[in-house]
Design a protein around this nucleic acid. Structure first.
Lengths: 135, 135, 135, 135
DNA sequence: GTGGTCTAGACCACA
DNA sequence: GTGGTCTAGACCACT
């Protein structure tokens, strides 16, 4: 369960690429697709997988290390820490629900009715976007 | 109905301030709080209201003008065009629903269950966020 | 008291340049040469002053911001926060005393006598190295 | 007197591991814990003792050999040369005193008073850190 | 092959 | 002018 993980970023998003990477790794941990001790794709693997410069990935991994979510060891690689699940879940849930509220707020601001919003959400939920993707 | 409009931006948002301004104006138009012919707050008013540099507002208004949503006339100010409602509604609906889908996608990515998502949305809808705000 | 500050780095030091920059800024705050509200030299000024790439300085400033020592605002600059003195003093004192202990430990390891060590320290203290410099 | 020597490295130190190893060997020689003709722990022994890859130790020994401090002979191992004491003492004293001066300089930079520095040094000296350790 | 630092230079957002 | 992100590529340390 620690390989064949999918990551991708949206270069047109206003969200910085390295932040998207951080989020995706946190999401993968929060959802259990990455567990304590698992190796995160190496910076070079990740950078070719998602099509960005290696340094961008390294920046994301460094941030994740400062957050206590991963541990990096020279010559070895980057692994998920024991505290990662707790930290990642906390941050992810908070962030994701904030985004939800924001999105709903926008819907209201443009004049969508509660019914419209709810059905749009249902459609999105059912369209069953596979459990990866974020940007 | 064209004054006493509220606008605000979130300087910590990853979304560029000038984009937030454009969105808020479009939302106001799409929701009917601003109609064809109404004056949009002058760049100076707007900049002091939301606490950013005037140039940033000017940039937003220039963009809106290029989109055909507002019109700038010397000595008169910036006013909402006749086509504005159609354009703003189209863009806003599209954008806002995309954000909703994205937010739902993130919820799924972190492992939230459809039930959880639906109830979070209901809570947000009911908390009745007043019909402005976006960032 | 907020200008004409001197900063310099030692490119031959095993300590990463961006870490040296972070330390020097912390030292300047801990010693009162930089106070809450003061502007830190802009990344570009700093980079030309000490002869390194601008990105290296930006990396240091970003770290300092994550530590809560400075605040950066787009288009404005980097300023010292209110909590900076407390944080910087704590970290600096700890770091600097650790380095002292380490250095003393090395002296002992090579066989220097306590007397020798003490007189070497006195010499260093008296040589009155001006209150900047660190590397 | 040539065995039961303790070596250790700090993987979190900004000083390269192979440099730490070189220093510790030099310190051991300068302080007389290792003398001309003594065998230095084999690269394998050393690497398991301090918990790093054998190649890292090999690199340190190669450097020490280039400095004329040790000699590698097939089937015999790595031994301390006759010139080792003179070389190691020279380099160690120089390095160690430079570190002391640097550490004192940092203390001054953060605003410590000469009295504080002297008493911190005395404490460190008295705490009688056993004659190994360096990093 | 793995992570880490640094450079030089481009482009963006904000004042 | 100020900070921020990204690229491409060099060089280092460690496995």
């Amino acid at each position: 369960m620690q390989d064949s993980l999918q990551f991708s970023v949206n270069l047109d998003s206003p969200i910085a690429v390295y932040v998207q990477i951080e989020n995706q790794v946190m999401f993968a941990i929060a959802s259990g697709r990455l567990s304590a001790g698992d190796r995160v794709p190496s910076a070079r693997e990740m950078s070719t997988m998602i099509g960005v410069n290696t340094n961008t990935v390294i920046k994301a991994y460094r941030d994740l290390e400062l957050m206590g979510i991963v541990q990096t060891r020279r010559g070895i690689g980057v692994t998920v820490t024991d505290r990662a699940f707790k930290i990642a879940t906390g941050k992810s849930m908070q962030m994701v629900q904030a985004h939800l509220r924001e999105a709903v707020g926008e819907c209201i601001a443009v004049g969508l009715k509660p019914t419209d919003i709810r059905s749009a959400v249902s459609a999105a939920v059912d369209s069953g976007i596979p459990p990866y993707a974020s940007n």
